[in-house]
């Protein structure tokens, strides 16, 4: 025995006996979500430079409101004075905000509850988790999934429309940008924990249930995407911002879309 020191167990905000750089992950998430959130908010409130024939920014699809160009307008809400993107953005915000992966990310990064595994947190507050308002509303995730699936269908439609230029069928850089974007969003949506539950996770006995074999196959498919839900969440989030940026740069004339075919 060499020496002894007064001890205590690591308690209190940020206190830990961990020696690694545990703060890197929550800090990176806070910065990453902050940048994407700030860009998306700015882009949504712009209300212009979101359409460059045949490309429509994913933030503005489907386009609702009188401000939308006629050729892409789905419904004309004459009473809506602001950017068309705001009308539907609450759906996407709700879907991502109640997503089981993002919950982990922001509870750690922004609410520091806890900041990282085995790291102390503020113990003065009365912790209620997701048992009470407002976080009990996280249970509405599946409703946001239903609404997001509707928007995803429009994004697929837009990405296919991006093959059709004024002079006929073609492929531009923007076509590929929008196609990759909708592919990533589809991977993120198909890996949703609620979807995984609804398509087959809620079945205990597949051989006894109606359409049991099919539901087990669907559950396995959702499980395949779900395994890397975090990766789908991040790549689709970053990429949707980049896709909007690309359309915005083309629409504002800063860059010219390159036709490949």
């Amino acid at each position: 025995m060499e020496a002894s020191v007064a001890i205590s167990r690591a308690e209190g905000l940020g206190r830990t006996l961990r020696r690694d750089r545990w703060w890197v992950a929550p800090l990176s998430v806070a910065v990453g979500l902050g940048i994407c959130g700030a860009y998306a908010t700015w882009a949504i409130f712009q209300g212009r430079n979101y359409f460059a024939e045949p490309y429509l920014s994913p933030f503005y699809s489907p386009c609702l409101g009188a401000q939308c160009p006629e050729e892409i307008r789905l419904l004309e809400f004459g009473w809506w004075p602001m950017s068309p993107a705001i009308l539907l953005m609450w759906v996407i915000l709700g879907f991502r905000g109640t997503c089981y992966y993002y919950r982990k990310a922001y509870y750690r990064a922004y609410f520091i509850d806890p900041p990282a595994c085995a790291v102390g947190e503020h113990r003065g507050h009365r912790y209620r988790g997701e048992t009470a308002f407002p976080f009990v509303l996280q249970n509405l995730h599946r409703y946001f999934l239903y609404l997001s699936a509707f928007i995803l269908a429009f994004l697929w439609y837009d990405s296919l429309k991006a093959f059709f230029f004024e002079d006929g069928f073609g492929v531009g850089v923007g076509t590929i940008v929008l196609l990759v974007n909708v592919g990533l969003l589809t991977g993120y949506t198909f890996g949703c924990h609620s979807l995984r539950h609804l398509v087959g996770g809620n079945v205990d006995c597949y051989s006894c249930a109606q359409f049991g074999d099919g539901r087990h196959r669907l559950w396995r498919g959702a499980t395949f995407f779900n395994r890397n839900h975090m990766a789908w969440a991040w790549t689709s989030l970053i990429y949707v911002c980049l896709a909007d940026l690309y359309v915005r740069l083309v629409a504002s004339g800063i860059i010219t879309d390159l036709r490949i075919l």
């Binding site: 089981y100 919950r103 982990k104 509870y107 806890p114 595994c117 988790g129 997701e130």
Partner: peptide, 8 residues
């Protein structure tokens, strides 16, 4: 409901 899925 107390679990806020931080995955530790």
């Amino acid at each position: 409901g107390y679990c806020n899925i931080t995955k530790c």
